[in-house]
């Protein structure tokens, strides 16, 4: 009996430790959200989303230029990065022992661990240094370079989760290999690929370092990808390190908008993994 009591207590202690670990793990997100809402929510109003910055010293103004800049640059980065990443991931999954696939997998793993500021410098060398001016496009390319290895690896992992028996069933029906891959295998794991893509978009939407050397940032509304562009993370960086109280207020509010964008994308990713069919009868 004594032993049973001790076991129960042992179980309670271990469960307690694990609950504590979960709380500690979740706490930072809650702290971040709480701080941002406390400091930034008061500054968010309609003007904040539609107006441009006002000269230093004046109060008011908004970050419309940064919202447009982030949307455009991340959008173009997704247009470049998703097809390449998903295509490369499909190749690695379809031809797992191919030498090119082995090399690509290794390179992607290295790239995933590469600090994003290094990727910014590379994009600077490739585009900005040659064109001799900063541009939103260079920013998009830098962001795409971060997305490609992420999307590639998640696509490959998702495809590998599809049972081999489904592939065989399609082949046995007379599906050509490409059609088996596209309309059965990829179709089956599409929610996973969409999730991976959305998470990659969310990740690069918050990237600052690669944009410092490429898009540079701007105080004006710029819809030209060939010109320097503003972005939400760059705006946070600029305003948070500036000398004016009103700038700090805008930095908090911008950070709140940014994290809301990232949270929304993550929630969309959760929705995408839902079953397409209602399995319950």
């Amino acid at each position: 009996m004594n032993r049973l009591v001790w076991r129960r207590w042992k179980s309670r202690i271990m469960v307690g430790l694990m609950v504590a670990a979960v709380v500690v793990a979740v706490a930072p997100l809650l702290l971040i959200l709480g701080t941002l809402i406390a400091r930034g929510a008061g500054s968010i109003n309609f003007e904040f989303f539609t107006a441009l910055p006002v000269p230093a010293g004046e109060t008011g103004g908004g970050v419309a230029h940064a919202i447009v800049g982030t949307l455009m640059m991340v959008g173009v980065a997704a247009l470049i990065g998703l097809p390449i990443g998903i295509g490369a991931g499909m190749f690695c999954a379809e031809f797992p022992r191919n030498r090119l696939a082995t090399v690509a997998r290794f390179v992607a793993d290295v790239m995933n661990g590469t600090p994003s500021i290094v990727i910014g410098v590379v994009a600077w060398t490739m585009i900005v240094a040659r064109q001799k001016h900063f541009s939103g496009l260079a920013g998009s390319v830098a962001l795409a370079m971060i997305m490609i290895p992420m999307v590639m690896r998640t696509t490959e992992e998702m495809i590998k989760l599809v049972p081999h028996s489904l592939r065989e069933a399609a082949l046995a029906l007379g599906y050509p290999r490409w059609r088996t891959s596209v309309s059965v295998v990829v179709r089956t794991c599409l929610p996973g690929i969409v999730t991976g893509s959305l998470l990659a978009i969310a990740r690069v939407a918050g990237e600052t370092a690669p944009l410092l050397f490429t898009a540079l940032g701007s105080q004006y509304m710029s819809r030209d990808l060939n010109q320097p562009m503003a972005a939400l993370p760059l705006t946070v960086f600029t305003y948070a390190t500036g000398p004016y109280d009103d700038w700090h207020r805008i930095a908090w509010a911008t950070a709140l908008v940014l994290i809301m964008v990232v949270l929304t994308l993550s929630l969309l990713a959760r929705l995408a993994t839902r079953q397409r069919f209602d399995v319950r009868q």
Partner: peptide, 14 residues
Amino acid sequence: GMVFQKPTPFPTMS
């Protein structure tokens, strides 16, 4: 045509 040991309906299809 071929039928396998385990049923293999395509899960994304009706």
